[in-house]
Amino acid sequence: MTEFAEIWTYLSTDPLLWLTLTLAAYGAGDALFKASGRKPMVNPVLIAVAFLAVLLQLTGTSYATYFAGAQFVHFMLGPATVALAIPLYANLNHIKKAALPMIAALVAGSLAAMLSAVGIGVALGLDTNILLALIPKSATAPVALGVSEAIGGSPSLTAVFVITTGITGAIIATPLLNLLRITDWRARGFAVGVASHGIGTARAFQVNETAGAFSGVGMGLNALLTALIAPIIAQWLLG
């Protein structure tokens, strides 16, 4: 019989193990989410990430080794982003009718995200280089990283802020919007997409298809607006 150590040596260098565990951890997180009666606090992404992070620590596995397996899941983000065009198209009539509220909510939400993050950061005494990395955090990851680099922030810090913002949005959106008594799925979805990109959009799709479609639009439009406005806010911050 083969020693466990030998099997582990094979598994720990093979992408199969971490790919399987990524799917299993998310599956478990999703099962817990459903068992909780779909409570926003029981976020499947957060559960899977926490579980896998602890497992990497315990087994002394590097992130590079983990990613060799998990990259197959990560890769699907590209085609999934492209796929957002389909619910967008299906909701074309809704979107045409709501063009003006959408544009206003985009500008207001995007500016509110960037300015309030910088404002709170300044008030709490964060360094300028951290503030620069915070500015584009509501945009989808590839845009946020590019913008961060362009305005002199650290892209790896921004990556952390982007994911944290997404999970925060996914958790707080439902209780917050209920508290505000906003019942329009278009308004709810759109605001979440602008503030917390793809992770917020994924959450919106779990709640309501229309909210998901509008969240996808909000995410796409805010990617564009952040790329345009973040350099101006950065200049103002440095000036």
């Binding site: 995200a113 802020f161 308004a187």
Partner: peptide
């Protein structure tokens, strides 16, 4: 702690402002 407050605070503000603007304009 400061980063946590900035991220959670700004996300609350952004969702609130975005959703209220949408409903207001509608």
């Amino acid at each position: 702690a400061a980063l946590g407050v900035a991220i959670i605070g700004s996300t609350v503000v952004a969702i609130t402002v975005g959703a209220l603007t949408f409903v207001g304009l509608r």
